[in-house]
């Protein structure tokens, strides 16, 4: 089961949107910055249909703009499946509607924020704008959301039910969410909250312009981990850690939240090249999609930008293992390979 990344697009706290550079002008946030907001493009340019755009909240605009850009950049190859992933969906609209229920005592509530609060809003709007009446799914399982979407896409491509699948991970920061999570003890021990929208156009067949290929992925819960998951994942790919040129880690910066990941990291051979990405995008449920975006770019550009904090050396970059962990609960592994 493998697929080719024909094109990808990222709106993140870094200058990643509609650019040919790979994190060369990234700004590593300072230790005091607890909340990383996305750098947003001019949505009037990215989403031309004013009739639909006027209702879109921040997260919908991020998702839709990233999705449209991803498809446009693939010479307009239309997807035959659209699969989105989000941990909390259209959170600001959800909060807005809740707020109005409370403030107006359940009377005279504007329907728009309710309509837009549903988790599949972004997937639906992308379908509407691309006029794609195809398969349309939305996965909403914490740190397994993007992983589920990608697995679904790879299965569809292998089955021949789809030839080109648009897959994206999207989540937004809201002030309320930041405060609630702060009360729960987050953002105090090194982790930063983040947001973003990463989309990938995946194909079953290679073309001459592919960015990279995704060859395997696996998910597991930290609570049931026996520490052998990476080994068995590599076994199933017919590889050993020696075959991996660089390990890209989704460390949040909070040692407690990264416990499973950090404990595995200790077992890495001395000198094995490692890099991290979450200090650039922040922690959120679908942050692994930013990790995959980085891994694919490492393979495309064959260079590791300083912003990813590389340690160790690699001969070349042919295979990258991404290990992501979300709140020491959802762990995921992705294997990406260079296209020939």
């Amino acid at each position: 089961m493998k697929c080719y990344i024909r094109n990808m697009s990222a709106i993140s706290p870094q200058p990643t949107f509609a650019t040919d550079s790979f994190l060369s002008s990234a700004v590593v946030p300072s230790a005091d910055e607890k909340c990383l907001r996305a750098i947003e493009p001019d949505y009037k340019v990215c989403i031309k249909e004013a009739g639909l755009r006027r209702r879109m909240s921040h997260v919908i605009k991020m998702g839709v703009a990233s999705a449209l850009n991803c498809v446009e950049g693939a010479n307009g190859t239309l997807p035959d499946a659209i699969i989105t992933a989000t941990g909390l969906g259209c959170l600001a609209d959800t909060e807005k509607f809740l707020q109005s229920i409370i403030e107006n005592d359940e009377r005279l509530l504007n329907p728009t924020s309710f309509i837009q609060s549903t988790f599949n809003t972004i997937g639906g709007q992308v379908a509407l704008l691309l006029k794609c009446p195809c398969y349309n799914f939305t996965y909403v399982h914490r740190g397994f959301s993007f992983e589920s979407a990608l697995l679904d896409a790879m299965m569809q491509l292998e089955d021949g039910d789809a030839s080109n699948v648009l897959v994206g991970g999207i989540d937004e920061v809201t002030d309320t969410e930041f405060r609630v999570m702060e009360r729960m003890g987050f953002w105090r021990s090194g982790a930063k909250m983040g947001e973003g929208a990463q989309f990938f156009l995946l194909s079953s067949q290679p073309t001459s312009q592919d960015v990279a290929q995704i060859t395997s992925l696996r998910t597991f819960l930290a609570s049931t981990s026996d520490g052998t998951e990476v080994q068995s994942f590599l076994d199933s790919c017919g590889l050993t850690i020696k075959d991996i040129d660089c390990v890209l880690l989704g460390e949040s910066g909070d040692a407690k939240m990264d416990a499973t990941l950090l404990s595995w990291k200790k077992s890495l051979p001395v000198g094995k090249m490692q890099a991290t990405f979450k200090h650039l995008c922040g922690e959120y449920q679908t942050a692994s999609s930013f990790g995959v975006w980085c891994a694919a770019n490492l393979l495309r550009y064959q260079t590791v930008p300083d912003a990813l904090r590389p340690v160790g050396k690699a001969e070349g970059l042919r295979r990258i293992l991404v290990f992501n962990s979300y709140r020491n609960n959802n762990c995921s592994l992705f294997l990406l390979e260079k296209v020939d």
Partner: peptide, 30 residues
Amino acid sequence: DVVSHDCGDSTEQIASALGIHGFLSTISTA
């Protein structure tokens, strides 16, 4: 009261209560 807000919470609670240890996922398409 708010830790279970997200859709994945119920899935993980069910899996944990009933001893389901394989692949978990949650879908939300209205």
